[in-house]
Amino acid sequence: MPQPLNYLKETVSQTAGPYVHIGLIPAMAGFDIFEKNFSNVLVTPNTKGERITLEGRVIDGSGTVLRDVLLEIWQANAAGRYNHPADRSAGALDEDFRGWGRAGSDFESGLVTFETIKPGAIVDRAGRKCAPHVNIWIVARGINIGLNTRLYFSDEEAANAADPVLNLVEPPVRRNTLIATRSERAGKAVYSFAINLQGPDETVFFDV
């Protein structure tokens, strides 16, 4: 027998279940308990950057929209800098932007929305420039381990074409599953997305 390595093993995932709102968004469960709550609004009036709405749905293998799903997003600020010490890039921090939010899908429409800013391009630790993107984590009843995916922006064609992660996706047609479509609504940019859990347009999910 070789010497034991003595690493601990990661605690395994379990589904968030149908009542995930109780713990993470209690107002959606139907009650008010905490003085301070987390939300789908990532911006304050002082946050720098272009205000955008992210708006999408998560769809199961029968084509049905999930109405009990919870998404979290994590993104860089308008200068392309994450609010975390492990980001050593040169972009300026924005003290009015944590870069994280969570949202439950609407119980009727299944719509998930975030009010945020468009992130800047990111320089990764290998010095490569990465297209602006938002990192997404998805949990729900029936999802045994949180799903990781990303959203890129339809108006960043050149940056997307050079992005080192998008370029890993094969076949290339699947890269489109990660791109949110820009439109304008009442003068504000809205990026629409669909996350397909299965089927011919299955979204690319990452083992990060």
Binding site: D60, G61, S62, T64, L66, Y82, A86, D87, S89, I122, V123, D124, R125, C130, A140, R141, G142, I143, N144, L147, V165, L168, V169, R174, L197, Q198, E202, T203, V204, F205, F206, D207, V208
Partner: peptide
């Protein structure tokens, strides 16, 4: 109905 069927794309940790 809620499980991806394509293999996950493995990413080395980036920033």
């Amino acid at each position: 109905l809620r499980s991806p069927r394509q293999p996950l794309l493995s990413l080395e940790s980036s920033v």
